[in-house]
Design a protein around this nucleic acid. Structure first.
Lengths: 202, 202
DNA sequence: CCGCGCATTGGCCCAAAGTCCAATATCGGA
DNA sequence: TCCGATATTGGACTTTGGGCCAATGCGCGG
């Protein structure tokens, strides 16, 4: 059961908005969770969350922009849509600079919100795929011992075994063994594939 | 004489704004060119332009957003800062979604504008460096003949000479020759470097 | 103290790649 | 029609890389 469905996290201090937007999104087939404040959302938030966040800007306690900052500080890649009644230009610009998917003003047309949510979910999926790819590659690299990692780095730059040996103060034979182990551990059979793998780990 | 300095391109239908902003930027050491309309800027614009664009939003003829679209359609990577007196939230969001560096409202604090211009120039420099790197790599790849390019693609995936030969319907010896030529033409001495080069060309 | 993981090194053999040599064939132009 | 670029192939030789078996030394935790 790895399939935790995508969730739309709603954060707004106005209960009427939470209910209205929640109903709209649910009727569109979304799974929705509502929070009356940024703090309550943060308390319930876990890193692996999938979906997107629809948040108000001005709220008692932490504001929408502060919530956005908190998420980025906490490596959370949850895409954010701001939905506010009292938005001004500088705020919207800050939000967009901070990576928000969209910045909508109430009252919002249903279609507009649904499209924004769709775009946010798409972005989230792409991010997760890219992240999983990176993580997978990094996990593989982490199986290398310190010495193997050194050899790996030299292999990336296309050095010959004898050159690596000279650089590491050993003999070619030793590097040959390390090289074979590195290729085996990383599940590749050529230097080309090894370089590609390193690129995926970024 | 390759050193065409960075220029700030000012586009605003209000002559007073052109003069005031122009004076501010010039006093900060910038080279400035002013245009009273998007059309006049477009007429004078050439692809290799370096610097950034500071544009108004609402103007007779082409608007700021339409100018932004025109630039992106024309592959121009000139970073854009919008500076407008009558900006609303939806417009600013569209501008930022379209890749604008910033969206400022008049009257603007001098420091704010200067910082935005600085950020835009920085972004432009990064883009040019990245672009030059890509173009260089692509130019190298374009020196390959069709056949060499086929061999190149197989080398990227880590295939052996005999495997490439089978795929291309020739013998290993022939591939060996092509392989040597490819490495020589591209100025690399290992498959690892070749893969890196291909990555730069993207 | 012993086992285990890790780094190190040796020998042997074979496969693959790099480097010279040279030769033929085709195709599009000058 | 002859030239130049390209593709093709062969031979011979050297250098590198990969696989297999074996062995030593070191440090760490049971």
């Amino acid at each position: 059961m790895t399939e935790a469905a995508e969730t739309i996290f709603l954060v707004d201090d106005d209960d009427a908005v939470l209910r209205a937007v929640g109903r709209l999104l649910r009727s569109a087939g979304c799974t929705v969770r509502s929070y009356p404040s940024a703090e309550e959302f943060i308390a319930a938030h876990h890193d692996g969350a999938m979906g997107c966040l629809v948040a108000d800007i001005s709220m008692p306690g932490r504001t929408g922009l502060e919530l956005q900052e908190w998420l980025s500080h906490n490596q959370s890649a949850l895409p954010i849509i701001f939905l506010t009644g009292c938005g001004d230009v500088p705020t919207s610009v800050r939000a967009m600079k901070g990576g928000a998917v969209d910045f909508l003003t109430k009252p919002v047309e249903e279609m507009e919100l649904l499209e924004a949510v769709d775009a946010a979910l798409q972005r989230g999926r792409r991010q997760r795929i890219a992240q999983a790819d990176r993580d997978g590659a990094r996990a593989l690299l982490n199986t290398l011992t310190a010495r193997e990692r050194e050899v790996f780095d030299h292999l990336l730059t296309g050095r010959l075994n004898k050159q690596i040996a000279a650089a590491l103060g050993t003999v070619e034979k030793t590097i040959k063994v390390h090289r074979a182990r590195v290729l085996r551990k990383l599940g590749v059979s050529s230097i080309a594939e090894l370089v590609h793998l390193a690129g995926r780990a970024k």
